[in-house]
Each structure stands twice: as C-alpha cells, then as structure tokens.
C-alpha cells in the first residue's frame, strides 16, 4: 500500500516538474499524450470492459466542443477560469444527456452493428454541425482562454490535460473495481447469461455508455479551449475515433494501463520517430496494427502480465465481430 502511494506521488512529481525540462514542442506532445490516453481510457469503459466497440466516439468530442462554445457564448460569460470550467462541465453534461437518450435504442445492437451505428451517428452529427447554419461549424467558433500571467498556453494546457487524464484514470479505476465494472465484464463475456445472474444489462450498458460519453465530452470541450478556434472538421474527426480503439488494442484492451501504454507508444512512434516523415504516418500505423494483431493479440500489456492477465484482457475476449 505504501509502495502504491510512493508510486503515485512519484508520478505526480514527474508530471508537475516535467515541463521544466522540455522544449515547447515536446510539452505539446506530452499534452497530446494526456489527451489521447484519457480518450482511450474513456472509450475503454464501453469498448474494453463491456465489449461494445464504438467506431464513432469522436461524436462526443465534437458535441462537447460545440455545446461548450455555444453555452458560454449564449450566456455571454467573460473569458476566465470560471467560464472555462462552466463550458467544460456543460459540454460533458450535454454529452451525458445525449448518450443517455440514445443509449437504449443504440445498445440493442451488438458487435459490428453497434460499431457502425456509432460511426453513422458520428457522421450525421458532423454533417449537421457543418451544414446547419445555426451551429456555425463551417465558419468556426471561438473559445478564449484567459491564461494566468506569465504562463504559456502549451504549459497551461499541459497541466489541464494532465489533471483530466488523472481524473479519467481515477474514474476508470473506480469503475473497474466496482460491482458495476463486474457487470460490464459479464456483459462483454455473455450478455444473455449475465441476465440470468441478475445483471440488469440494459441499465448497466446505458450507464457505462453515459460515463464514457461524459468523459469524452469533457475532454472534447477542453480540447476546443486548447484550440481556441475550431470548426466542425477539427473536432469531429474519424481519426480520433480510430485512435481510441487502436491505442487500447495496442496496449491491452480492457485494462487500466493498456490504453495509456498504447497511447504512449503510438505517439512516440508517430510524433517523435516519424515526426519528420508525415507522409508515412498511415503506413506506420497500419503496420503496427497488423503486427500487434499477429504477434501480440493481447496487446503490449499481455507481455508483462501473467497468464490470467493475458486471457482476461485479450482480443479474444474483446468485442464480437457480429
């Protein structure tokens, strides 16, 4: 137990001090890591634990961003920490409400049908945000951040995303240890049998989906703040949806560490190693995905975990193709 506390404290100290030693570009890479790792963790709640693979989770990034921007604009809140908190909280809540509404119909679909339906919802939302004048998705929206004196934006958002990452991590940890988390696991393993053990599958799925959406919405609204100015195409991005899945798979789906490890590895590869070779990003990502599937079907964490870990959190246990 004390070991864990030391580890946690050590991590916190590293996170706090790290920007002192990094160039602005690398601070931005680490900030991107916190953002995408948190997204992957949020996706993992439904995708990893319950086996419901959403191919369209970016819908909540976009919705969170648009909800936050319109909310603070409509209320005419002046830029500042309170406005930012209000915007992010509203973005998160809005996503939660939308998720809770669509949860029951959409979660009746299983496997690839659920995945594609989510992709479809993401596309519809993106197209509407882009084409319906009221949303201003084509001309773009502003979200101004009042930076504290003497703090550069990359440093500020580094700490903001670090905080949100830790928050998402804690939520995931609590979910995985809870009765609810076991319910999600039972759903992933066999939904019909879960019902016979008294697991209220419909409610649990809806709740898991809503938690996941709230977390992604929160991250999306914050992302919009970090951009300052955004359009529909900068927040509704299919590559966000895909990265959430890929990071989980590479690290180890259904685990706490997996999504984080996956995000770190892929960012290291694409941002640092291939940083100069932008035109090879897709190729590299594709190769890594294939190699992981063929050689480490349990993700990187499957290498370090024991047999129990490997079986529990493997792709074999993941979503069903149909």
């Amino acid at each position: 137990m004390t070991m864990r506390i030391f580890l946690l404290l050590g991590t916190l100290i590293v996170i706090v001090l790290l920007p002192q030693f990094l160039a602005p570009f690398h601070i931005r890479v680490v900030q991107l890591f916190f953002f995408t790792a948190a997204l992957a963790l949020a996706w993992n709640v439904m995708g990893g634990l319950a086996g419901y693979w959403s191919f369209g989770h970016t819908v909540f990034i976009g919705m969170g961003a648009f909800a936050a921007a319109h909310f603070v604009a409509k209320l005419g809140l002046p830029a500042g920490p309170l406005q930012m908190i209000a915007g992010i909280v509203f973005g998160a809540l809005f996503c939660g409400i939308v998720a809770a509404i669509i949860a029951y119909p959409i979660l009746r679909l299983r496997g690839i049908y659920f995945a594609i339906a989510m992709l479809g919802i993401g596309q519809v939302a993106a197209e509407l945000a882009n084409n319906v004048g009221w949303f201003q998705g084509d001309v773009g929206l502003f979200l101004e951040t009042a930076l504290p004196d003497g703090v550069e934006p990359e440093r500020f958002f580094y700490y903001v995303f670090a905080g949100l990452f830790l928050f998402t991590w804690m939520v995931s940890l609590v979910v995985m240890r809870s009765r609810f988390g076991y319910g999600l696991l039972a759903i992933r393993e066999d939904e019909d049998t879960a019902k016979m053990l008294g697991v209220p599958t419909e409610q649990i799925k809806a709740f898991g989906f809503t938690i996941s959406a709230v977390l992604v919405g929160m991250l999306g609204a914050t992302y919009a703040y970090s951009l300052g100015y955004f359009t529909a195409s900068s927040v509704f991005r299919i590559d966000f949806s895909l990265n959430m899945i890929i990071y989980c798979l590479i690290g180890g789906i259904g685990t706490l560490a997996g999504p984080v490890v996956g995000a770190a590895l892929m960012l290291l590869l694409t941002q640092i190693i291939l940083g100069q070779l932008l035109e090879l990003h897709l190729l590299a990502t594709g190769l890594v995905v294939i190699l992981i599937v063929l050689t480490l079907p349990n993700g990187v964490m499957g290498l370090v975990g024991g047999e129990a870990f490997r079986r529990r959190f493997s792709m074999r246990a993941g979503g069903k193709a149909r």
Partner: peptide, 27 residues
C-alpha cells in the same frame, strides 16, 4: 492467420491496417 491466432475481430483490425498501408502507398 489473424483469425486463427486471435479472433474474427482481429480480422477486422488486420483489414483496417492493410487499408491504412494501401492508402498511404496509393498516395
């Protein structure tokens, strides 16, 4: 090979990976 090593889901990922690679090559 992917199906026998992992699962049907793995085939989804493999075809996705190949699509990324081919798209890049075509570009």
């Amino acid at each position: 090979v992917a199906i026998s090593r992992a699962s049907l889901v793995a085939s989804l990922l493999v075809t996705f990976g190949v699509a990324l690679i081919m798209r890049n090559l075509l570009q």
